[in-house]
Design a protein around this nucleic acid. Structure first.
Lengths: 127, 127
DNA sequence: TCTGGCGGTCACTTCAACGAGACTAGGTGT
DNA sequence: ACACCTAGTCTCGTTGAAGTGACCGCCAGA
């Protein structure tokens, strides 16, 4: 049944590009940033205030990465007082439904998963 | 509090449990392992052969993590010659649709993303 | 003038993930 | 007898991602 055919459409095959893409888009801060930018375009320091846990460096890196992948857009509003605005691109907006599906799954199954963890942890305790 | 919500749909806030869960389930090897186990239950070394790039250590860690979260199940088939089988749990099977949606998104938008990357990279080259 | 906001960059450090490879301990094939 | 299979564990070393804090030029307000 299982041959080495690379194009086995219908069942999901996880290829290297898939992994690389998911690593860039579902990383530590990207979801939170996209979440903010989906609601409204924001300035750099607005994002920092909205997501207090992110450092300047990580936020810069995250925004650059998302910009490179065409998910967000960086606009220089004015250069005399430096003002930058970040917003989702059309491509970025298409990312929302799949992510919502994923988060919905996480929400509905969190209780089961917590139960499974508790079960696993107590079992390995008594072992 | 944001009362400027224009859309009820997808007012998802990415909370710490969300992030932790996604980190555990969408990590480097989990998708590939789930992919294999969705097709059929497998033994440890069958998984190694199916995913040649994974090391013993990482595969063990991945399977333990997935087992702890109730995604896969570990069954000792026989202890005289040690034989172990891994299979998806019912909970694990519910993970498949959301992941498929995500991978489908990745597939359809990979060209756009590659184009965006090329654009970004050439722009920063000439700068 | 001095402070503070804006949008970053740079150097340094720390920490966890990951890989390589040895080792275990019984069973199987030749 | 000897090698290899199973399902791991253990140690060591590397690497990369993230955080910390300093610093930059520019501008506005007190």
């Amino acid at each position: 049944m299982r041959d080495t055919a690379s194009d086995d459409v219908g069942a999901f095959t996880v290829t290297a590009p898939h992994r690389e893409l998911l690593d860039q888009i579902l990383d530590k801060w990207s979801l939170a940033v996209c979440n903010e930018l989906c609601e409204r375009p924001s300035r750099f320091n607005e994002l920092r205030r909205a997501i207090p846990a992110v450092t300047q460096k990580s936020l810069t890196a995250t925004l650059r990465r998302l910009e490179r992948n065409g998910i967000v857009e960086r606009t220089l509003l004015s250069s005399r007082p430096v003002a930058v605005e970040y917003r989702m691109t059309p491509l970025g907006k298409t990312l929302r439904p799949p992510v919502d599906v994923l988060l919905a799954w996480a929400d509905t199954h969190l209780p089961e998963i917590d139960a499974a963890r508790a079960r696993f942890d107590t079992e390995s305790d008594l072992a």
